[in-house]
Design a protein around this nucleic acid. Structure first.
Lengths: 205, 205
DNA sequence: GAATTAACCGACCATTGGGTCAGTTAATAG
DNA sequence: CTATTAACTGACCCAATGGTCGGTTAATTC
């Protein structure tokens, strides 16, 4: 019976609140006390469960962020036919949560990359790992599309993946402050436009 | 003789070093002392010239960041003909500095947006202002292209602008850690692909 | 060359933040 | 019922940080 229910519950409460605050205020701008105050818990409780603030954060990434990103950005793309439709829907859904100002894991990702890049290699290792998996997923999705005859066979799958990741990360940054809904709509239109340009032309005669 | 030479020189030195460190370590993770140590100057000197750390930062944005972004991302686009070529070249150049790990103002921008969003409205005001100008520049560039007959007249200029900004901000984030040169190359290829899809088809008969 | 002032020094202050630890409480085992 | 242990408390430590202020130095002015 490794790790009792109570222990797990408390750790999870801390992680959930921690992620919320880290997302809102940034890692370096959120103190352990801030999180504890929110939960009416003490310093002792925190350091009983976690080794350090950094250890705490890495566990948040592994427990919460990775899983959520998997279910939002990875799994939905691992379907079979009509790759580009899958990706379109996936982005559509992921951005919709952003419109409603929910805790959005796509942005959490690019946010944290910005904050830790060049400062904390340990944390970056974990964030890069997520990016890598996302990239691999997209690349093989595109290759599948080429194989299935939906995507032009001259298309560079790696290129498409990088372009998709870029635009997604970027639109998430842009949606944070100004007119998220309008920007989402415009973004999705252009994404479809771009997709049309790499599709196999059905009737070009 | 408002603001003597000496004053200006010292302030500028502080700002340049400040931006460097803010870029490298983030705003909240860079102390005033860090900057001062670099320059062998004292606390007194700093608070003689600036009201606060925040005031200091805002002046950096206005003096250094805004101007640099103007010259890198705004002015090069304000040419006349062949809009899409202008934008392509502009992005190409801007990303090239990133490859060489130079202090890159495009990324500075998205970096700081991530750090200040929802935390410091005063600073965000300035950052959003830059984004707004960039957006306006891109929108009118596209409209010019439509007018000149280089861009398909059905194209949504605002949409293209948002899409371009997104992808640029995103690729800058992605280029920071992994294979910047390869990613830049792939990105530019896909950008050209996308541009082809909104160009006026020269010979569609 | 005395007076004024711009530019700068560095000791000091209050607060914050990560982390420690001796001790308390509550559940569980024997 | 007692002993043990898991879970948690909160006072304390210490280094760092933004900011203050009285004082010094060097350039300018008269």
């Amino acid at each position: 019976m490794e790790k009792s229910i109570k222990r797990r519950t408390t750790m999870n409460r801390m992680q959930v609140t921690g992620l919320e605050l880290f997302y809102k205020n940034g890692y370096y701008n959120t103190s352990v006390d801030d999180i504890l105050k929110e939960l009416s818990l003490s310093k002792g409780a925190f350091y009983y469960h976690f080794d350090s603030k950094e250890d705490f954060f890495i566990q948040i990434i592994e427990q919460l962020v990775v899983r959520k990103i998997y279910s939002m950005l990875i799994e939905p793309i691992e379907g079979h036919e009509h790759t580009l439709d899958l990706i379109t829907n996936c982005f559509e859904n992921a951005l919709e949560t952003a419109v409603h100002n929910e805790l959005d894991y796509g942005f959490v990702l690019s946010n944290f990359i910005g904050e830790f890049n060049g400062r904390n290699p340990e944390v970056m290792k974990h964030l890069n790992e997520i990016l890598r998996i996302w990239e691999v997923t997209l690349v093989s999705a595109v290759q599948r599309g080429k194989f299935n005859g939906h995507i032009d066979r001259h298309v560079d799958a790696e290129g498409v993946a990088v372009y998709l990741m870029s635009s997604f990360i970027g639109i998430r940054t842009l949606m944070v402050e100004t007119a998220p809904s309008a920007r989402k709509y415009r973004f999705m239109s252009q994404l479809r436009q771009y997709f049309k340009s790499i599709e196999v032309k059905q009737s070009s005669f």
